[in-house]
Design a protein around this nucleic acid. Structure first.
Lengths: 212, 212
DNA sequence: AACTAAATACCCTAAAAACGGTATTGTAAA
DNA sequence: TTTACAATACCGTTTTTAGGGTATTTAGTT
């Protein structure tokens, strides 16, 4: 793997043994200009808000603010900062929270050092290394989520058109004009859509059919 | 990694060079009882429907039926069969189709042999190895909730929360209850959101902030 | 100390959406 | 041919949203 240079890399980890070992391994094997180590999320947030790192590796459990909340805040300010999570927690909730917060990599601490170094390189090259146990959880959640789009198929052609118009933010009156029907026809179609989808508002209908 | 025994492993690949090389590598390094090689999806489907494998590795592009359709059919009959995809395609659509069909692993053919062998072991142990480039696409699709949208950033923290609630399909009354404020407060926030975003309906607001 | 933005809350009105029933026409399937 | 459904349309009523104005409190900034 070609080792691209990394400008600034940050480690946020309260266990000094871990952070020191990581820092040592990283500086030995990876070409990093600046290597920052923070012992808590607050310090990291303060510094990285001002001067973002290219890559930041977070522990989840930290004294005070946890790593995930810290990622969330930092990603708002610096969306291009690549945040990795390195933790002992493999609970699905924690994983999804981290990914939702903007983490691009999720590794378990049981991962051998060589793999972690490899993962840093992969992140630097636009990859998204995830422990395979974690990946399974993500995929399982993903497949469940994607299946719901069958609802759209159950609607009639005209109903699908109506829903598309709704997704574009038009009002009943506007839809009626665009599709050359009366406003009551639009009403009826949408009522039937809600009935079929078992919802009672536009946003719910759009959610259920995958528009949202 | 402890090498658990694999009873039946199948390779579905039309390029004989690839399949022979894979078979050789696998039989050299992994403890497999039966190693089956199929040159097309039809043959694999016929045999594996009757006698499923523990793990099956599919190429996507095959003469006749493609690997993904084959996985889909097989997973209906044998849900516990672990299907891996090994392909040159990293198009998001192909990846999602494969995962939706029930594939539990998605690797690029550029992956070195050692990694592929490792991946087989991981699948055998309940993991879900995915090339890190692929993982990024999955994660990005999974976290469509990218709040890096400029308009979204212009809103205050509370306004962002309100918008999130709207995106979940809640009514003002429900939002008020959930966030422990009066319905009038919700109204005011949403009025201010519309003002800032220059829109005049929920769906427009959700579109503009990237929720839709 | 004055200013500002954010969060809270109340008032009112008009427009839009949701929910209900019913009916006609055409077309396609049983 | 009867049934079923899709698409059209009209009649209601109630609830929800959108819009406007105004005001208080708190926290942060100048």
């Amino acid at each position: 793997m070609p080792s691209l240079k990394i400008q600034r890399l940050a480690i946020i980890e309260d266990d000094k043994q871990v952070s020191e070992y990581l820092a040592e391994q990283i500086s030995m094997h990876i070409d990093v200009n600046e290597l920052l180590v923070f012992e808590n999320a607050e310090d990291a947030l303060k510094e990285l808000s001002q001067h973002p790192a290219d890559i930041a590796m977070f522990d989840v459990q930290l004294p005070g603010m946890n790593g995930i909340d810290c990622i969330q805040r930092l990603k708002i300010i610096h969306p291009r900062m690549q945040c990795m999570v390195l933790t002992v927690y493999d609970k699905p909730d924690t994983v999804f929270e981290a990914l939702k917060a903007g983490a691009i990599s999720y590794l378990l601490k049981s991962t051998p050092a060589a793999k972690i170094l490899e993962a840093i390189q992969e992140v630097n090259q636009g990859g998204s290394p995830i422990s395979s146990q974690i990946a399974r959880k993500v995929i399982e959640a993903f497949t469940v989520k994607e299946k719901t789009n069958d609802y759209f198929q159950e609607l009639s052609r005209r109903e699908q058109e109506m829903l598309e118009q709704l997704s574009m933010g038009y009002r009943y009156k506007e839809i009626a004009e665009k599709l050359f029907v009366s406003i009551d026809t639009v009403r009826t179609h949408i009522r039937n859509i809600y009935e079929k989808l078992q919802v009672n508002s536009r946003v719910e209908a759009l959610k259920k059919t995958g528009f949202l």
